[in-house]
């Protein structure tokens, strides 16, 4: 069986996979990183989004072998080792941007990439358009949009702390 060597959340692993194994299968089944989810089989839902070399990628739409040598970050790798959450994770909690939590890992990973790629800041409309690849069936997106809007202020250093949802 072919092998793939990749670094996931800072840890390098070499794993045997079939040619057809998807990156998400490698993460969930070989590395037991089950925070990355599978919500569809047509690349529509974004529950599987991870970062590959700094870009958000639907890990159900990439073969494991294509990740040779890649740096992959999953939801498990976002918080600091001391447990401090990433501002986006913090904002999702503060703004009640998750209910069942199933879309959440993909949503958070997509949102971080979206914000990072728009240092000038995103309007509500731009956030909505930027989430085009992620489905959430629970929240109606209202609070997800608010959370991302709040998180970008912290991520771009315009605020030192997250604005409280009550503000």
């Amino acid at each position: 069986m072919p092998q793939v060597t990749l670094t996931v959340n800072g840890k390098t692993s070499t794993v045997e996979v079939e040619g057809r194994t998807l990156l998400v299968e490698l993460l969930r089944e070989k590395l037991r990183l089950t925070g990355t989810h599978v919500g569809c089989d047509t690349s529509q839902c974004g529950a599987c989004v991870v970062h590959v070399n700094g870009d958000s990628v639907k890990s159900c739409t990439m073969l494991a072998l294509q990740a040779e040598g890649a740096e992959v970050t999953t939801i498990e790798g976002l918080a600091k080792p001391d447990g401090t959450l990433h501002p986006m994770q913090e904002a999702f909690r503060e703004y009640h941007a998750l209910q069942c939590g199933f879309c959440t890992p993909g949503m958070v990973m997509s949102a971080i990439d979206l914000v990072q790629k728009h240092p000038q800041g995103l309007s509500e409309k731009e956030i909505r358009e930027g989430l085009e690849g992620n489905l959430c069936r629970c929240t109606g997106y209202h609070n997800i949009v608010k959370a991302i809007a709040a998180a970008q202020e912290v991520m771009h250093g315009r605020r030192s702390e997250l604005a409280s949802a009550a503000e």
């Binding site: 925070g35 999953t74 994770q89 909690r93 998750l98 958070v108």
Partner: peptide
């Protein structure tokens, strides 16, 4: 939320 946000659901 903490477990869902950190991939530990």
């Amino acid at each position: 939320d903490l477990r869902f946000l950190s991939g530990r659901g």
